[in-house]
């Protein structure tokens, strides 16, 4: 591993609880296909979030089963792509999860000793 060139990735254990939120947030902007979701997450996180394809696709299929997102095949381009977009329920879920997330961050912040809370590294 060349740690000098690539920044430290977030621990998968740490990300586990917020993967749905990340995917829903990406889809809130516009419809995406699996690969582009992965790319967007990578870019947005400065390469700290590296969601493996083997993790991403089951998440997408589960969110679809829960009717939070819906999919459509696009056969107009040379490569057939399955596009995903948020449903109304998905948008609502995103709002709820975002609120929970803020409360969670706030809670952790207030738990930390002031000394550490102040020296949070810049993102």
């Amino acid at each position: 591993m060349t740690n000098k060139t690539t920044p430290d990735k977030f621990d998968s254990q740490l990300m586990r609880g917020s993967l749905d939120l990340m995917v829903l947030a990406i889809l809130d902007r516009e419809a995406q296909y699996g690969y582009s979701i992965q790319q967007k997450l990578r870019e947005a996180s400065g390469e700290k979030v590296d969601l493996k394809a083997g993790t991403l696709y089951p998440i997408l299929h589960r969110l679809e089963a829960e009717k939070l997102i819906r999919s459509k095949w696009d056969e107009s381009s040379a490569r057939k792509r399955k596009w995903y977009e948020l449903t109304k329920t998905g948008r609502k879920r995103l709002q709820q999860q975002a609120q929970t997330w803020h409360a969670y961050v706030h809670c952790i912040q207030s738990l930390l000793p002031p000394k550490l809370a102040l020296t949070l590294p810049a993102p």
Partner: peptide, 20 residues
């Protein structure tokens, strides 16, 4: 490698479809 173990991935998909 990024796709992971085929058996494990298949299991995930099957479980999701089953609950659906």
């Amino acid at each position: 490698d990024e796709m992971g173990d085929a058996g494990e991935l298949a299991q995930h998909f099957s479980t999701i479809a089953k609950s659906r």
